[in-house]
């Protein structure tokens, strides 16, 4: 087991009150495995990732409970200096907007080489050579010249390749990609995803892919975890989930994907809005929007039930998962 997140709770202290962003998340990632974390904005998917990475702004953020076991040791118990050495070297992160995520006043070469000088103590010259190699590796043309350029001189897709190169630099065991293709054109999205998947296979890295794009997920993920209001509401191998969702929220998400054979018909949308994290509804947090809601949903928080009869490791946080699965 590469990464094992157990019962993670994260809160943010704001002027309006305590926002409970993550409420007991559990997930695991093996070496070479891709876990897709799916959810709307505010579902806690990015916050969970930031807590795992150790880049949460604290304060206002606070990890109130849980463990982040990385190769068996709890990262939350490490001192900041030990934690820092893990970041970038053993686990790395790719962000959504590569333009704002790269430093505008440093050349991409400097930003890549920094990984080697800081973590590996390489000389600047060697680090620079490695930076060119990395840019070659992510298929940036004329890497030797472009290494001296600044982020704004690259196209969106090329910039995201540089982010990928930076994350790959020290061959980490785990990569967390937070909506890596959201800011890109559709054609470029596919190229970037392919590159990421290829590199992952080659180095047998664990990959956590955070996204709200169901299309991206289907192609590359092994497993899916669907998040809602800071909880995982369903987790399953990707194809099982697509075939038969075991949670009404997942079903709603799948139904709201535009489909060619539904052309001309009105697009389905889950009614209502995601809950405010300051006031998460009682019982099942999805109950105000759920088409299958019953009395028990308003009072009892559903645990993540094991979905029996399916391949191992499938779970749903719905009291009526059986109905959902077969209905």
């Amino acid at each position: 087991m590469l990464l094992d997140v157990r019962d993670l709770h994260v809160e943010f202290h704001t002027r309006e009150g305590v926002a409970k962003a993550v409420n007991g998340v559990n997930y695991r990632v093996d070496a070479g495995e891709t876990l897709a974390v799916l959810g709307e904005s505010g579902s806690g998917k990015s916050v969970t990732a930031q807590a795992v990475m150790g880049i949460l702004d604290m304060p206002p953020g606070r990890i109130t409970r849980g463990q982040v076991l990385f190769e068996g040791r709890d990262l939350l118990k490490l001192k900041e200096d030990e934690r820092r050495r893990v970041r970038g070297a053993e686990m790395a992160m790719i962000f959504q907007d590569a333009l704002s995520s790269l430093n505008p006043v440093l050349t991409v070469g400097d930003q890549l080489a920094e990984m080697f000088t800081v973590h590996r103590g390489m000389s600047r010259k060697d680090a620079r050579a490695r930076a060119v190699e990395l840019m070659d590796r992510v298929r940036i043309p004329a890497a030797g010249q472009r290494v001296k350029q600044y982020p704004h001189q690259f196209s969106g897709g090329m910039r995201q390749r540089i982010m990928i190169a930076m994350a790959m630099a020290l061959e980490p065991k785990l990569i967390i990609a937070d909506e890596p293709t959201t800011a890109l054109d559709v054609t470029v999205q596919a190229q970037v995803m392919d590159l990421l998947a290829e590199l992952q296979r080659e180095y047998r890295m664990g990959l956590i892919l955070i996204t709200h794009d169901l299309g991206v997920v289907a192609d590359v993920a092994d497993r899916i975890a669907v998040m809602y209001a800071g909880r995982i509401v369903e987790t399953a191998p990707v194809h099982d989930l697509y075939k038969a969702p075991a949670h009404p929220y997942t079903r709603g998400l799948l139904d709201s994907v535009p489909r060619l054979d539904h052309k001309g018909r009105e697009l389905y949308a889950i009614k209502g809005l995601p809950p405010s994290l300051l006031h998460i509804p009682s019982g099942c947090p999805f109950h105000p929007r759920c088409p299958m809601v019953r009395d028990v949903c308003r009072t009892d928080v559903p645990p993540l039930y094991e979905v029996t009869g399916a391949p191992a490791g499938r779970g749903s946080a719905c009291h009526f998962w059986r109905e959902c699965l077969h209905g």
């Binding site: 880049i55 970041r87 704002s100």
Partner: peptide
């Protein structure tokens, strides 16, 4: 300090001083 590239720098595991 709240900008994305500073978050990237932290995620790269650079020492705070750097």
């Amino acid at each position: 300090r709240r900008s994305d590239y500073v978050r990237t720098a932290i995620a790269k595991g650079l020492p705070r001083r750097r």
